[in-house]
Design a binder for these strands. Sequence first.
DNA 1: TCGTGGCGGGG
DNA 2: GTGTACGCCACGA
Length: 804
Amino acid sequence: MSEDKKTLDLEVFILDISYEVVGNSPVILIWGIDREGRRILIKDHSFRPYFYFLPYEDADVSEKEIISSIKKISSPRSPITEVSPVSKKLFGREVKAYMVKTVIPEAVREYREKIKDLPFVKEVLEADIRFAMRYSIDKDLAPSTWHVLRLREVSSSGVYRVDGEYELIDIINRNVSSVPPPLRVVAFDIEVYNPRGSPRADIDPVIIIAVMNDKGEIYQFVAEDHNDRDVIQKFVDYIIKYDPDVLVGYNTSLFDLPYLIERAKRNRIVLDISRRKNSEPRQSAYGHISISGRLHVDLYHFAEEISEIKIKSLDYVAEFFGVMKRSERTNIEWYDIYKYWDDPERRKILLKYSRDDVISTYGIAEKILPYAIQLSALTGLPLDQVGAASVGNRLEWYLIREAYKYNELVPNREERPYEPYKGAIVLEPKPGIHENIAVLDFSSMYPNIMIKYNIGPDTFVSDPSECDVIECYEIPGTNYRFRKDPPGFYKKVLETLLKLRKSIREEMKKYSPNSVEYKVLDERQRGVKILANAAYGYMGWIGARWYYKQGAEAVTALGRMIITKAIEIAEKLGLKIIYGDTDSLFLYYDEKKINEFIKEIEEKLELEIKIDKIYRRVYFTEAKKRYVGLTVDGNIDIVGFEAVRGDWTDLAKEVQENVAEIILRTGSVDKAIDYVRRVIRELEERKISYEKIIIWKTITKRLEEYEAQAPHVRAAKILLAKGGRVAIGDKIGYVIIKGSGKISDRAMPYMYATINDIDTEYYIEHQIIPAAMRILSYFGISEKTLRGSKGVKSLFEFTEKRIS
DNA sequence: TCGTGGCGGGG
DNA sequence: GTGTACGCCACGA
C-alpha cells in the first residue's frame, strides 16, 4: 500500500458495507459510487469488534478483579485488547457495564459464551450484532445514502472489480442526499429442465438464462441441449462485463441462485459474478443470498407483504404493478417446460416465455427499488437485506441505531411464551344501505397513543402506589401506569419519526410532483410512516428485543377509550354512527357537524381525525368487518367480503363484486338476480373459464401436522404423490371434481383436471350462491330465487328494510 | 345442530 | 419470526 498519495474529500453513495479478515485482522469494505459514477471500494482498517457485559449489581468483586478475570480468558488467536467499565443505560436505567474489545469478529461468539458463564456476569449484551452493521451504526453511515468521506487513494490490490480503491481517513459529512445516482441494474431469470416435475439441481441442467438491463437490452443465453456449462459461463461473463450494482430477480434467493450455484459446482466452474474476484454468492442474513460488492434484491419479498396481491407468482405481481397483463404474456405451466425444450418448434415459445419473465422482473424492480432504497437508507439495512428482513426486523434495526444515539444498550432476544391480550373495539354495524357516509380515521392512532402516554418498558410502573396520577398516566381498564417523565425510548423514537415525516412532506412542497426529488421524498415519507405504524405491533411481538406486553395492552386499552369518547362526542353533536373499527368511524356526512366533530376531537382528545373517504352509498349486513361502498368518485370498495379473500374462487369474487356493484349503482335487486342466474347457467354449460374456478389455499405447516384433512391438504398430498414438491407457504390450487364422498376427497390439484371433470353443483352451492347471498339475503332473496327463474321484486319493495 | 379447529384478510 | 378481532369452512360429537 503506498502512503505517499494525498487525501481527497469525495461524495460517496454507499451500496453495501461488508468486511473480510486479512492476515489476522478485519478490514471493513465500503462499496460505493462517487459523483463521477466511478464504482469504488473504501477500506477501513481501524475498526474492531466489541460487546458488553453487565456484572451483578451485588457481585462481591472489584473492578480490577473483573477486568483481570476477563483478560485471563483472552486467547492468542484473537486477543482481548480492552476491557473497560462504561456508563450505559438499559431500559432507561443507568447501568455500569463493561466493554470487551477483541480483534477478529468471529471470536466474539466464543468470548460471549465464556463470559456469560462467569459467576459475576449477569448478562452479555450486543454480542449478536453483525460486524458490518456494528460499523455502520457506530459511524452513522447508512447505506443507500450519500456521505462526504475523506479518503486516501491506494494502489489497486488486483482483487476487486472496482474503478478505485481508497483508505478511509475521516467522515466529513453524513446523509447529504438520498437521491440515488443512476444505478446499473440487471434483472435475471433462469429456466431449467424438469422431466420429473420439480427440477433437481444435481442432475437437471439450466436451459435458458435471460437478462435485462437498465438500458432496456435483453439477452438470452441458451444451453446446448442438456449441457449447461456454456450457458452458465456466458451469464458469468455478461455480469462481469456489464458490472451491475443491483442484480434483481424473482424468488432468486430460494431458487435461481442456489440452483446456479449447484449447477456451477457440478460443471466445475466458478460462479464468479461478484466484485470480489473468485468469490461466489453465499447465504447471508435472513436467508438471502449475498454477492460481494453488488446488491442482490429478491423482489419476491416485497410482493409477499402486499396483501392486495392474492397469488404471488411473477405473472400476477407484474400484472398488479401494471408491468404486463397476464392475458398478454406467454403462459407455460411449469411442469411442461421440459416438453417445450425438447420440441424445436415449441422451444421458441419457451424463449418468449423466458423473455416475458425477465421483462416482468425488470418492470417490477422499477416500481419497487425506489421505495426499497429509501427503506434501506432509513433502517440502515443494506438494500439487498432490507426486503428479506421482516417488518419487525426492519423496525428493530432502526431502533438499534436510535438506541446507540441515546447510549442505550440493546436488549437481547429472548425466548418467551405467547401471551394473548385484548385488542381493539369493533362496533356492530347498522345493517342496510346508507347514503352519504363519511369515514373518519384517527391519524396514526397507535403511534400517537404511545407518544402521548409515554408507553414502553422503561416508563412502566409496576406498583401503582409508587406513582400518583400527577406523575403518571393511568391506563383505563388496566392497573398499569406509565411515568410522564422522562420521555421513554419508544416515545423519543416515534417523535423523531413523526417529525421526520413532517419535515419530508414540507421538503416535498419545494419540488414539482414530477421531479425525481419529489418522488424520492415521497417514497421516504411512506417508509417512515410504515415504520412508525409498526411500533405497536412490534412491542407486542414476543420475538422483539423491546417486547412489552403491558405496553401493547395499554395501547389497545387507550385505543378503546379514545374511540368510545369519540362516539360520545359524535352522538352529542347528533351525528349518527353506522360503524367503527379500531381507529375509524362511519358517520352520516353533515359537513358542518363533521367539521365541528373534527374540531372537538382535536380539543378534547388532542388527537387528529380526518375524513378518509365519503361514500355515496355504503351497504352493511349484520357482520362486522365487511361492507361494500360506492365512493363519491365512483369507485366500488369491497371490504371483508369473499370478493377480497384469496381463498375463494375468482368466479365467486367476480359474482360478489358484480352483485355489489349492480346494487350500489342501480339500486335494482332484479338486475342482480338476473345476473346471478346467468352465471349459474354458464357454469352448468361449462362455458366458464377453468382458471376462474380454481380455489387457492396456503399450506401453513408441514403436511403431517394437519389433523383435519382439509381439501387443500388433500390436494397437496396428491401433488406430492405425483412427484411435485410442497413447501410451507405454497399456495395450492385445486378444483372439486365429480364423484361421491366428502368434498375433501374430491379435491384435485387443478393441473390434473379439466372443466369437464368439475362438480358444477359444488360450485353453485358453495361458491356462487353463498357469495351472492351474503349481499342479497338482506333484501329477502332466497337461494331458490337465485336458482329459479320467477319474476323478482325491485329494491323499492324492500324499502321498509332500509335503515336510512 | 352445534362446538371446535383451522385459516386468511383488513382496520 | 408485528398485533387482535372476526367470519367462515369442514368435520365430528
